[in-house]
Amino acid sequence: MTGSATSRRCEDPRPSGPRPLITFVELTWVEKRVETWIRFGRHTCEEIINRHRRVLGFPANTVFCFVRWAANDYGTILSRLDIIRAVDEGTPFQTLSFVRPGGEILLRVSGWPKVWSALQAIDAIQTRGIDPAHVSPDYWRHVHNRLTAGQEPRAYTVEQHRAFLLRRRAGP
């Protein structure tokens, strides 16, 4: 698990407000049954519910990868990977299981072969010395589209990343 865990509890800063400025993700870990984890992303708070469940909080506009896997007595029944951007107040969002209030889905794949391909794309980015949480959202959409079409996504290069950072610095 990556991120910057703190001992601060994840509490809704405005329980009576329209929606929180923190995106909450509930993680469950029951060995060989239900395993959910964050592959990358920086959370700002963590609340341990019990020995199998905890909640992480991500500030608005941060990107993180949420992986879910589940099995029964006969084998795997769920493999899913979502790359999500945490939403800010007033921003439209999609709802996801175990993510409150939801987020902007940049990549969503189901089924172990596609999840494995997405994990390989993340690993390739990290081997280039780039934090996947800082990659261009358009690249994650590209990976989503290519994997959905059954094609290999193009590699994310250091030059692409540099150009993305310069565009972001220049503003809208």
Rank of each mutant, 00 (worst) to 15 (best):
P132V: 04
W112E: 05
Q94T: 15
H43F: 15
S7H: 02
P113H: 06
A163I: 07
A133N: 02
G41W: 10
G17I: 01
F24V: 01
I105D: 06
I48V: 15
R162A: 12
P13M: 01
P59N: 10
G3R: 04
A86Y: 14
G3H: 07
C10Y: 00
Q151S: 12
V67S: 12
W140C: 02
I77P: 08
L81H: 07
R9D: 13
A71E: 13
A149Q: 15
I84C: 09
P132Q: 05
G90W: 12
A60C: 12
R108D: 08
T76L: 06
L106Q: 03
C45I: 06
A121K: 02
L147W: 05
P137S: 07
V55Q: 08
P172C: 10
D82C: 07
D82I: 06
V87Q: 03
S7D: 08
F64V: 11
A133L: 04
A163V: 09
N72K: 09
Q120G: 02
P92C: 08
M1H: 04
D138T: 04
G90Y: 11
G90N: 12
L96M: 15
G17Q: 00
D138K: 02
E46H: 11
R108K: 09
C45H: 07
L166W: 05
S110P: 00
S110K: 11
Y156H: 05
E159V: 13
A118F: 05
C65F: 05
R108C: 06
A118T: 03
F58E: 09
H144L: 06
L107D: 08
A155C: 03
L147F: 08
W29K: 10
S110Q: 14
S79A: 15
I48S: 11
L81P: 02
C65L: 08
N61Y: 13
H161P: 03
R146K: 14
W116M: 05
D88N: 11
T95K: 14
V158T: 15
D123H: 01
A86K: 11
A124K: 07
A118Q: 04
E26P: 00
V115Q: 02
A170W: 04
W140V: 02
R33F: 11
T62L: 13
P92S: 14
A121L: 01
G102R: 04
I38L: 15
P137R: 02
R169M: 14
R54D: 04
V55R: 15
I105R: 11
R33G: 00
T95Q: 12
V30N: 02
R51W: 10
R162Y: 11
R100H: 08
E47I: 06
G41L: 09
L147D: 05
V55M: 09
V63N: 07
L27F: 14
S4D: 10
